[in-house]
Design a protein around this nucleic acid. Structure first.
Lengths: 167, 167
DNA sequence: ACAAACTTTCAATAACTATTGAAAGTTTAA
DNA sequence: TTAAACTTTCAATAGTTATTGAAAGTTTGT
């Protein structure tokens, strides 16, 4: 496989993967493109490379910047803006995990807490609702804690030893 | 908050959460309904409760069965089929983690492996592509291993001690 | 202050995904 | 074997989300 083919494959796979977890295709593709690029790219470069419109590029770049994954890079002597992405996968995964926790886990933890705290009127169905949502609540909270801790402390001794143990 | 309200809140939140990670609303809602129900439900029951069509119910129940989350339950003396979901959250999370790994992580690991294995022609851009996709590959593989191991062994001593350490 | 270079916004529209409902298919009881 | 009871399928349609492109907005150099 040659460079060009590999590049296209990577960008398109990353794009469709994004869709699978609620990140739109263009956003994921822009990030992928920047991730393997050796220098910052301009909006023109990105539009050209991915064959997407100016508006689309602008909006998705903005979202990536909001997420903290992409930053503007000033290139001396150039008027237009250039963009780079976080290149360190460790840091990148920390940011993504944080965002997914915020968007996916925390809202459900909040509702599960509310629902599992309703007044127990002693009926079978109320007991079941409380029991089951409480179990889910504990699970979601544990998952959230683990996701955050693991990603935050990825290189420390706890994880290192854990990895040795489970691999 | 009364039972009915809590129930509706739980089902609708679970449904929209589903959408966020690529599971359709109806499917997630059916699972939620079964999860808090004290006895198996028929297709009629589900249609009635969630106000969705027969076709929709049938198709989504099928998917839930394919995932291994829902099973048909034979109720003596009844001709129609009844359905229940896995009630144990531990087991439920194991199934979901497995499915997400299969659908979300494994395809990307596969492509990253291919892409990071291209012939290194010595150019800057090729070196960058290889380096970055290799780093992602390692990350995705580690994440996959951890997801599976953690969920599979949730109650064993490793996780118990880990949880104590990081909580 | 002007205009060229560039970016953002947003209404229109395209693309995609979910849902319906009725027809076709299957199972069961008599 | 028949028909009632039930489930599945799938073309049509509704609903949702992404994308475009042109107009409006902003910044910068002269």
């Amino acid at each position: 496989m040659e460079y060009q083919e590999a590049k296209e494959k990577f960008i398109s796979t990353w794009g469709s993967l994004g869709t699978l977890w609620g990140i739109n295709k263009a956003m994921a593709q822009i990030q992928a493109l920047l991730f393997i690029s050796t220098q910052p790219l301009s909006m023109e470069d990105i539009m050209e490379e991915l064959q997407i419109s100016r508006g689309n590029t602008s909006m998705n770049l903005r979202q990536l910047i909001d997420w903290g994954i992409v930053t503007k890079a000033l290139v001396p002597g150039e008027r237009k803006e250039f963009f780079t992405t976080e290149k360190d996968v460790q840091e990148l995964s920390r940011i993504i995990a944080k965002e997914r926790s915020r968007r996916e886990i925390q809202p459900v933890v909040k509702v599960l807490k509310e629902v599992s705290s309703i007044k127990n009127d002693g009926t079978e169905k109320t007991k079941e609702l409380i029991k089951q949502t409480k179990a889910l609540h504990d699970l979601a909270e544990t998952a959230d804690i683990m996701l955050n801790k693991i990603v935050n402390q990825q290189q420390n001794w706890i994880t290192k030893s854990l990895l040795k143990l489970i691999k």
